[in-house]
Design a binder for these strands. Structure first.
Lengths: 164, 164
DNA sequence: TGCCCCATGTAATCGGTTACATGATTTC
DNA sequence: GAAATCATGTAACCGATTACATGGGGCA
């Protein structure tokens, strides 16, 4: 793929759990090429449209396998919503509830989107050996969204009522 | 509080959803003081131990309230575990399963810790008006941990078996 | 001709961590 | 008096986003 392709694909199919900007991608491609982990591919050129397409090398594949087997680094804990609720006592009345309702709506929408994608995948990618992995990832999103919706309901009722 | 106090408190009671380093805290205190949102407090000095304690000003409280009511920014999507599973087809056999089992253990431990904290809070902070907010935050952690454990079990069985 | 999308790339900037420098106080 | 801990602060560095510069190709 080209840098542009990579950006687009990430945006389209990984956006709920990953993102990259051009400022990361192009320098990374340069580094990967210098390290012989990817190599440029000659294209059937239509005109002289400049477009740099790369493929992974055997060395790159080995590195990728090693990286995939490496335990993922735990992401740094920073949850602004929880921080605001933690200090909720000092917030204007109703502010926490508003945050929670907003969260609920967002997660409801995300859940619907992921459900749609699941159906689409089952229909269009049947037999694809990647399917089981992709499904597992989608399910992570669904289960997270469900958990957040349940929690927000429970939190809303726990925070409802002034003094109790 | 002092910068040191702030660091310690965050480390002790917010660590599962927030973190700050001195490199953030001290410059921030300086900026907040310049903006009159916090002010230094004179201490009953025991010797001349240098220790800069601040309190929030009225202006600072107003800003804090406004910030608390502001919708929290959604955190940037970057989940390395899901990324590795997404490309799981290219990973060595068993690598994804190992990641999932590691996750399960971590979340099991976190869940136990949070349960302990819940009991402690109920015992020691009964009647504290912050309690309901803190409980809601703890419950977010518990519900997240439960969801992750359930998902990891389900994912492990979905990925078990070579060709199915 | 002008506009929009494709496409590559870099510079400025930002938020954040890490490592280090410094030194006071407490404790053994 | 040595070691541990309290305490403040900064410089170097890192990963990432944003904004910008540049220009080709297709199309109205």
């Amino acid at each position: 793929m080209s840098g542009y392709d990579i950006r687009r694909e990430i945006e389209e199919s990984l956006s709920f759990f990953w993102s990259e900007s051009y400022g990361q991608i192009y320098p990374a491609l340069k580094r990967l090429e210098a390290a012989r982990l990817i190599a440029p591919v000659r294209r059937a050129q239509s005109g002289t449209r400049r477009r740099r397409v790369f493929r992974i090398t055997a060395l790159g594949e080995a590195k990728l396998r090693a990286w995939l087997a490496d335990p993922p680094a735990p992401q740094p804990p920073r949850n602004e919503l929880l921080l605001k609720i933690f200090f909720g006592r000092h917030a204007p009345a109703g502010a926490c509830a508003a945050h929670l309702r907003r969260l609920r709506v967002q997660q409801q929408q995300l859940s619907a989107t992921l459900t749609r994608i699941t159906r689409q995948l089952r229909a269009e990618r049947q037999g694809d050996p990647n399917l089981r992995y992709w499904s597992v990832v989608i399910n992570a999103g669904l289960s997270r969204a469900d958990a957040l919706m349940q929690w927000s309901d429970q939190a809303l009722s726990a925070l409802a009522g002034g003094s109790r």
